[in-house]
Design a protein around this nucleic acid. Sequence first.
DNA 1: ATCGGAGGCGCGATTATTCACATTGGTCTT
DNA 2: AAGACCAATGTGAATAATCGCGCCTCCGAT
Lengths: 213, 213
Amino acid sequence: MDESAVSTAAVPSTAERILDAAEDLFAAKGYSATSLGDVADRVGIRSPSLYNHFKNKEALYEAVLERLLAEFSGPLAELDGGPVTNERVFYWLEAIVRQHHANPNLARLLQHAALSGGPHTNELIDRLFRPMFRPDAKIEGEGITLFENTGLQPWAVMAFNNLVMSYVTMAPMYRDLLGQDPFSETALENQLNLIKVLLHAVFEYKGDMTEAP
Amino acid sequence: MDESAVSTAAVPSTAERILDAAEDLFAAKGYSATSLGDVADRVGIRSPSLYNHFKNKEALYEAVLERLLAEFSGPLAELDGGPVTNERVFYWLEAIVRQHHANPNLARLLQHAALSGGPHTNELIDRLFRPMFRPDAKIEGEGITLFENTGLQPWAVMAFNNLVMSYVTMAPMYRDLLGQDPFSETALENQLNLIKVLLHAVFEYKGDMTEAP
DNA sequence: ATCGGAGGCGCGATTATTCACATTGGTCTT
DNA sequence: AAGACCAATGTGAATAATCGCGCCTCCGAT
């Protein structure tokens, strides 16, 4: 009765293969610049056959988004509860970075959505980022009154998020410039080290930032 | 002979108005998703008339790029020569941030190019960023052996650049979340403060970063 | 009168989408 | 076991819209 008695990893269904292809293409070219013909070509079928699995282009896009959101929901929600310490924030960031490293498509898709809109953009943003800005999720360590009393905290969260996501979306630009594959294992370690340094530096920062520029 | 004897800001020529419209649209939707019909509509003419001013779509795109590069070449090249101190780096970053704030289109266009390619992408990247990674442009202050002896320095440059550019490209996402216009004057001050803090923090950071995660 | 610049028209390619149809696999009936 | 049935899934052809782009005409300012 099993699809395969040898391996537990079943052969992907056509719908899944369509999702895989569509995810890559939507992430690379955005919603409107992606043609269903391209998607079908990658799967190895004709474009009308796509309509046996998805109602239309927009429904396919929604399905891609849904799968990506589910994939990233775990690490993103992992900071709920407990004290927000330097260490915990870093491990949280590390998990997110590794997730984006393993699948860069969400960041790319999100960047396209932020730039050009596209269907369900507002809902997408809400579901991903609203939890990060809930008032009860404030960073309240010991040394870091830094952001709180200056109103910078949400912007700091935004900055670190940008740091992580733009590493993915800008990566192609740096492949040549840095002479290294941004998605290699050593590059990942480099990025993690850098984030760690920035985070430690910010957590330990005691300087005055009220002086006028 | 002058276009206007009354005001030094002459009424923009049709070619310039086409460039303005095309810049906005290319920046918002990317190269292939932008139609010449949309451009013509914004200008208020029919799309065939565009060909009286530009050879084809690609030439129009090149012209947009050229104008943007010229607009940003000033601040970007301003760090050449002299010691690279904390203060100088910050004022350099501040100039760039203000430039992107005044015209966000270059960052958006660059992000599209990084994600989807498009004509002349490699040349574009080279002309903008190659100078930032010239070996003679190393950051060699006093306190900051931080990046040099760990090989992180180019990645740090990349990170701060990402910070600046993704503020622009991700801005639409944060408009709702933060309840503030990211391009307002106070938001600009916020971003500058945050960058200042990060930069100071990194410059003053004396921690150990050789420990294994 | 000349000529740059705008519009009208239309070709060929590509797009998303629909439809009629062929083929498959499995299930139910006999 | 054999044949009838059906749902799932593929195909090619066709449609309407939109795209980039070239050709030609005409108008208005110099």
